[in-house]
Design a protein around this nucleic acid. Structure first.
Lengths: 130, 130
DNA sequence: TATCAGTTTAGAACGATTCTAATGTATTGA
DNA sequence: TCAATACATTAGAATCGTTCTAAACTGATA
């Protein structure tokens, strides 16, 4: 991500100091799964004094512009994924860690959806033991 | 579920008045997905004055004894499923409703799990549009 | 460079859940 | 049958992730 300011402007997001810092971290080329808390910790490490409220606001702003995906992994917190392509995950409960599955998978034997409902997308979560 | 008291005792759960009422509702032969809130509402309808704390306690006690499954569907609340067999779900975000998929499905093209990790189970969530 | 809409922030509020500690009740064994 | 006691229930307080509020700030625009 070369010109973050330009990138944010393209998405109708004002490139404020805080958003630039967060976008630089999130979109550095390595896909990430973050929660408000883990992101806050990373930002603290890099001595960026960004308030929690702004972190929440920014994650949601980015989500609304399609820059992040929301994951429904567990009920304790909201995970955001910088990989917005359709993909699946390994999940280690023990490590509280997600790993992208970037290969194509096929699900067979799917029953018809209920009346008047259409399938939007299929998400596979592969739970790991250890 | 004929003799709920016996059933609870078998699971080392004291068959208190509250647990019997809740178990009778949950294990009436029709699989259910409940949250503390939806269960509380059902219990209110049947004029069972059971405190929220007890509802939470009971759901967790039942979960710990393997009578309920916890579902990770969204981050707003915890869903409990009376169907403890391995199965999948349709999910309608709009209706905030889950529908069991009780047929066998196969997932193909799964990559190898990360080093030293074993696959525990595979969960498929089929998102519905409307 | 003044204006103003959009943004950040601390701290309050919120909603789901858990905890506390006092009261109540099922079980046990004499 | 009836303590004794271990386990359950409860109201309300506490907690925790998240959202809201309203005041201060800042990037864009003219």
């Amino acid at each position: 991500m070369k010109d973050i300011k330009h990138f944010l402007r393209q998405k109708s997001l004002r490139p404020t100091k805080q958003r630039v810092i967060i976008a630089n971290y999130l979109f550095d080329g390595v896909n990430k799964h973050v929660t408000a808390e883990t992101l806050s910790n990373e930002l603290l490490k890099m001595k960026a004094g960004i308030s929690l409220a702004t972190i929440y606001n920014t994650l949601h702003d980015f989500y609304e512009k399609g820059l992040l995906k929301k994951l429904m992994i567990n009920s304790e917190r909201i995970y955001f994924d910088t990989n917005t392509e359709h993909h699946h995950h390994f999940y280690s409960k023990k490590d509280q860690k997600l790993i992208d599955i970037n290969v194509d998978m096929k699900v067979s034997g799917l029953p018809k959806p209920p009346k008047n409902k259409k399938i939007n997308k299929i998400e596979v979560l592969v739970h790991l033991d250890n």
